[in-house]
Nucleic acid binder design. Structure first.
Lengths: 122, 122
DNA sequence: TTTACTAGTATACTTTAGTATAGCACTTCC
DNA sequence: GGAAGTGCTATACTAAAGTATACTAGTAAA
């Protein structure tokens, strides 16, 4: 559901906005969440595949973050009855729609960097 | 400048995207950045005004965060030669355009919460 | 002269986030 | 029988983020 008022139109910052922004922030902030989501954004992957994808992450961190992402409805975990067991992680449909958010963040990040550098040159 | 490829179109996650997302995250993540930006989003304010706006923040934190935001080109600090001195904080034009990012975050946050709750009910 | 306002700083602390290193249970390959 | 691959967990640590409490200099009103 679309919020009734955007930040631009609103005259003050309603609590529900802050809460919704925080929900989104909780999903993507921290040292490893973006790399993990990035790794899953284009394909489902297994534990060790993600680990190989993100060279410096420890299994403890990967495990911890994946659990948190699963709890938050961002990642779906599927265990296959193979020998040895294989476990697949994939983004939920809701998480896939994160790319809209990420796109605006990329755009703002690039623009903002240009604006800041521009001011320093002048 | 608009990035050439969006997350949806891209087949892998380019480094420049990750960097730009991190730039944006650095500006808005942490316990107090959003409340401070929220407080300045509709008007310029003085130190104690912001402090009254955000009841539980300590002056140490407010001071620290404002310095960081100033360094990152998000906030502009102006000292007025009144007695006692008054200092005004306002968002830079670049920071004001953050509301587009925040809007998509609000929208995703609300949708995602609905999706997660929906799954729990079923 | 005490009080209160301005915009903060100083010091010491707790809490949360992240790291380092080792190990487990299971199975297959050599 | 040992090594190697599966998906992790346990313990102990360091580093970063945030809190609590007190305090500063300058001025002005009571």
């Amino acid at each position: 559901m679309k919020p009734k008022v955007s930040f631009k139109e609103a005259k003050s910052c309603p609590l529900q906005f802050v809460l919704a922004v925080n929900d989104t922030l909780n999903v993507i902030s921290g040292k490893w969440k973006m790399p993990i989501i990035g790794s899953l954004l284009f394909d489902k992957r297994r534990f060790t595949e993600i680990q190989r994808n993100i060279p410096k992450i420890t299994p403890r961190m990967l495990s911890k973050e994946l659990k948190e992402l699963e709890l938050n409805g961002v990642v779906k975990r599927t265990v296959y009855d193979t020998l040895p067991v294989s476990v697949e992680y994939e983004l939920t449909p809701s998480a896939k729609s994160l790319n809209h958010v990420l796109d605006t963040m990329v755009e703002w990040g690039i623009r903002h960097r240009e604006a800041v550098v521009g001011r320093q040159k002048r």
